[in-house]
Write a protein that binds this DNA or RNA. Structure first.
Lengths: 198, 198
DNA sequence: GGACGCATGTAATAGGTTACATGATTAC
DNA sequence: GTAATCATGTAACCTATTACATGCGTCC
């Protein structure tokens, strides 16, 4: 009864907004769209089957000409109950893993110019994603409280804040690296044998 | 030669700062400490063995009385080379998964008071962690550029920014929920059969 | 002719968590 | 006595990624 994975709840949460196929679900959960949970179709199809066997979703077989037949899934009452009870269940914190931060931890082994290149690059990646999110904002900012649209807006706010903060952190480190590099260059100039201090 | 996992690089990065045992590594990678990468000892011991078989680390067997014998691992030259070349290698973005944000996506199904409880709770969790990180800050803020300590400071800055942003997002949603709840209460008061508008 | 979208699945592998297993010393 | 620290491992399980597999229609 209670053994639904987080991915399972993610699917139930999507189906709560409307019936759709496994293919549609995979579209909404693919990496570039991303509402803080992703999955590929190879994970989604078996999970849908599991949910169906537990009676949390049901499907209707829809034959199509000129397209493969499809199964349109919808949330059952027991699926909706499981979803809502999960929402207020105790939330344990899960580990954060971030490869860039892990690299920064060993940054002292890198040539500073290489570190600078890496961080500038990453800052840009986050600025780009921020801009992408900002484009969605106007459509969602006036969503009325309590609606599914407002919930999307709330997750978007998280995305905006996350990317902005991340980019700002990169920018801080870029500045530090630039300062450090120019300080080292000054030293090497002073250390040149032909250098005569003023 | 190139098939080292991210966990492997995490271990190499720790060993670059000094020789230590698998137990010590597990201490530094356990959840409450957490420099944006975690692992338990059951993952670390086999990974150390793999790194050793690839010549990236070597160990010295240290017998002890009154304590179990230990293996003190240190980074080899080829391990250091692998680590530094990984640092500037192309970084592909990995999926972000956040159960709270996933729940917020389905928040419209919850009783608003339940949602409020959840979000207040989570805000506190992040404020607590923020405070914990802030306690480390004074010791690290003056670490000289280019040192291992400065790299720790840089990762700490990320932690500070991340937790602050997260807590602020929670706080925003808490305010929205409070506003929404009080608006609904006003309506129900007006709708009371015995209510006489002024 | 080839790539892309629709549509569904399975299999193999990698990565991560939880549990099992042992055993001495020290601190409360 | 009982829990915690030191110290090392293995096994089972769950989750997630990548690759394998099929097939028609449309657009370039």
């Amino acid at each position: 009864m209670i053994d639904v994975s987080i991915l399972g709840y993610a699917l139930l949460g999507l189906l709560a907004r409307g019936a759709m196929t496994g293919y549609d679900l995979a579209q909404r959960m693919r990496v570039p769209v991303r509402y803080f949970w992703q999955a590929g179709h190879s994970q989604i199809y078996p999970e849908l089957a599991r949910l169906e066997s537990r009676g949390m979703v049901s499907f209707e077989h829809v034959p199509q000409r000129s397209r493969p037949d499809k199964k349109v899934y919808s949330l059952t009452e027991s699926g909706r109950d499981a979803l809502t009870s999960w929402l207020s269940s105790p939330l344990q914190d899960s580990p954060t893993r971030d490869e860039l931060v892990l690299r920064v931890y060993s940054m002292w082994l890198m040539a500073p110019t290489e570190a600078l290149r890496l961080m500038r690059d990453q800052e840009q990646r986050h600025r780009d994603r921020l801009q992408e999110y900002e484009a969605y904002e106007p459509r969602l900012r006036n969503a009325p409280f309590g609606t599914p649209e407002f919930a999307v807006y709330a997750t978007l706010r998280r995305g905006l804040g996350y990317e902005r903060e991340y980019a700002d952190w990169c920018a801080w480190l870029v500045r530090e690296l630039e300062r450090g590099i120019s300080a080292m260059e000054t030293i090497s100039v002073n250390e040149r044998p032909d250098h005569v201090p003023a």
